[in-house]
């Protein structure tokens, strides 16, 4: 279970998160929705451990472990995965090599045996097929020359291979057409189960038509201003953030 209490964070001396309270019980998928600049991406990065954000207060624990004290790689080993809003290009690094390095690093950290190239390729091919990702995506350099949709699909492929316990999807739906959106949603839905939780950060309700969340939280001005069931997403879509935020205030 992910438990965030009173989390505050600064970027360059400006407070962006002003005390976030949020709990995602194991096995549940929660959505965080909010207008631009509300702190959605900051929340994602702070949880993943990016060091240009200064945490100034509060806590975030995952299965009782203090996430904020861990290095980013240790958070990944603990089962956290961040699907980036803007996946990073790695020229000169083959995607298959990248995925295998990542998988084996987390396996090593968990005391599991590493996979050799053959075992890895078998696993990776099964996942590419399941997610309708062309095989050649494994051969290309990580995200280099990928379209926006391909980059997002590559994030989902990584997630499928790394099998996190907690996935944070940071606006994974942005820039996707409906087909790509369905693939991304399918990727998340197949991971759903009693041991998997997700925090789906999005601006729009349309992704939530395909990934039905257990709870929806509205983030505005650095705080969760409202929480509710899946119907809250529709309400936001119908009335806009302004009215919902105003109502909460």
């Amino acid at each position: 279970m992910l438990e965030i209490k009173g989390l505050k964070a600064d970027v360059d001396g400006t407070e962006i998160l002003k005390g976030i309270d949020l709990a995602v019980p194991t096995g549940e998928v929660h959505a965080v929705m909010g207008p631009n600049g509300s702190g959605k991406s900051t929340l994602a990065y702070v949880l993943a451990g990016r060091d240009d954000y200064a945490v100034t207060g509060g806590s975030a624990t995952f299965d009782g472990v203090d996430l904020l004290s861990l290095e980013p790689e240790a958070r990944a080993a603990a089962g956290l995965f961040l699907a980036f809003q803007y996946p990073v290009e790695l020229p000169g690094v083959g995607n298959a090599n990248f995925l295998r390095t990542a998988l084996n690093a987390t396996r090593r950290a968990r005391g599991e045996p590493e996979l050799d190239a053959v075992q890895f390729l078998k696993l990776a091919r099964a996942e590419t097929r399941r997610l309708s990702v062309p095989d050649d995506m494994l051969k290309r350099n990580v995200n280099v020359g990928f379209s926006g949709g391909e980059k997002k699909r590559n994030e989902v492929l990584q997630m499928a291979i790394l099998r996190p316990k907690l996935a944070i999807l940071d606006e994974t739906d942005s820039g996707l057409d409906i087909d790509a959106l369905k693939i991304v949603a399918h990727g998340v839905n197949t991971l759903r189960g009693p041991d998997f939780s997700a925090l789906v950060i999005t601006h729009y309700q349309r992704l939530l038509d395909h990934i039905i969340p257990d709870r929806v939280h509205v983030l505005a001005g650095g705080r969760i201003v409202r929480s509710g069931g899946p119907e809250l997403a529709h309400e936001l879509e119908a009335h806009g953030y302004a009215s919902v935020a105003a109502e909460a205030a």
Partner: peptide
């Protein structure tokens, strides 16, 4: 950071 977020030590 991208690599570390995927579990690869610095």
């Amino acid at each position: 950071f991208y690599l570390r977020s995927r579990g690869v030590p610095e």
